[in-house]
Design a protein around this nucleic acid. Sequence first.
DNA 1: GCAATCCGGACCAAATCAGTACCCTTTAAG
DNA 2: CTTAAAGGGTACTGATTTGGTCCGGATTGC
Lengths: 155, 155
Amino acid sequence: MIRLSKLTDYAVVVMTAMIQGDGGPHTAISLAERTGLPAPTVSKILKLLARDGLMASHRGATGGYRLARAPDAINVAQIIAAIDGPIALTDCVEGAAGACGVESLCPRRGNWDRVNRAVRGALEGVSLADMARPSFPDPVLPKAAPALPATADAI
Amino acid sequence: MIRLSKLTDYAVVVMTAMIQGDGGPHTAISLAERTGLPAPTVSKILKLLARDGLMASHRGATGGYRLARAPDAINVAQIIAAIDGPIALTDCVEGAAGACGVESLCPRRGNWDRVNRAVRGALEGVSLADMARPSFPDPVLPKAAPALPATADAI
DNA sequence: GCAATCCGGACCAAATCAGTACCCTTTAAG
DNA sequence: CTTAAAGGGTACTGATTTGGTCCGGATTGC
C-alpha cells in the first residue's frame, strides 16, 4: 500500500522527541523511555540515521546523539532514505529474461521515473520541523474521538 | 522502500496493452499472452480494476474487459488505489494501547496526513496516457546501456 | 443446451520486515 | 591506568504481507 515502514514512523517520533528536549545529547535509552519504544529498536534507528549524516553521535561515557542539522533543514525524504534505503517505487524486473516479455513493454519504466520524481519532490517539501509542529489547526475538538487514532489518512 | 507492489506495475502494463489494441474487448487470456504475464495474475488484476470502476467488464461467450474511461482520464493514483487499496503511508498504531506511549506523541499523525496529501497529488498528476507514451525524450541512445533496466529510479 | 467467459471467494508458498540479542570498539570519568 | 558507559556492527528469529494459484458458480452468446 505504498506504506513506508514502521521504523520510518518511529524515526520521526524519535527525532521530534529530540527537538523537544534540551540541547544536550540524548542517549538511546533516554529516548526509548521518552518515546515508549523498545530500546534496541531506538538504537537501531539512531544508528541508521547517524550513518546517513542526519545524526551526530558522540561516543564515550557521556556520549549520545544529537541532530546534525536544524529541524527545518531535514526533510522527510532524507529520513525515509536513511531508514528504508533508496526509494524505488517499482523494481520492474531485476534480472534479465524475466517476465515482462522481452522488455519490449518496459519503456513503461521510463515513466515510472517521472512518478518517482514527483513523489520525491512531495516528500522533500515536508521538513522535520513541519512534522514536529503541533499541527492541529482545528481549535475545537482537540480530542473528541475515542482512542482510535489508528491508520493515517488514505490516499 | 515505499515501493508499490508488483501487481500495480503489472496493472499499468496490462492497461497500456489494452490501449494499443483495437477498441474491442480484451479477454484475460489474450492480455496475458500479449504481456507475457501469468494468466491467473492478469485475471486477478482485471478483477481488481473492474471492482473500482476502472474497467468495464462484459460477461458471456464474447465477453472481455474494456477501459471504462479514456486513458487520460485515469491517473496513477487511481490504479494504485484499485490494486493496493487505500494508500496509507503509516499505520501509526492500529489498536489502542500499543506502543507510542499514550498517543501523547501521536499528534505527529496529523502531519503524516500532510505528507500523504502531497504524495497523492503527485500521483494524481500522472495519467495512464502519460505512462503509455513512448516517454523517451532522448533522441540519441535509445538503448545504449546493456540489458540492465532493473530497478527504477531511486528517490 | 452447450461452451466460453467473467466473478468471487479461499488457499498456499515465498519474500520481506520488525524486533531482539550478542559482541566489539571507542571514549571519558575516576 | 582502570573501569564503566555508550555507540557500532552483525546475525538470528518470528510474524506479517505479498504474489500467485485454484476452484466452483453465474452469465451470456451461439
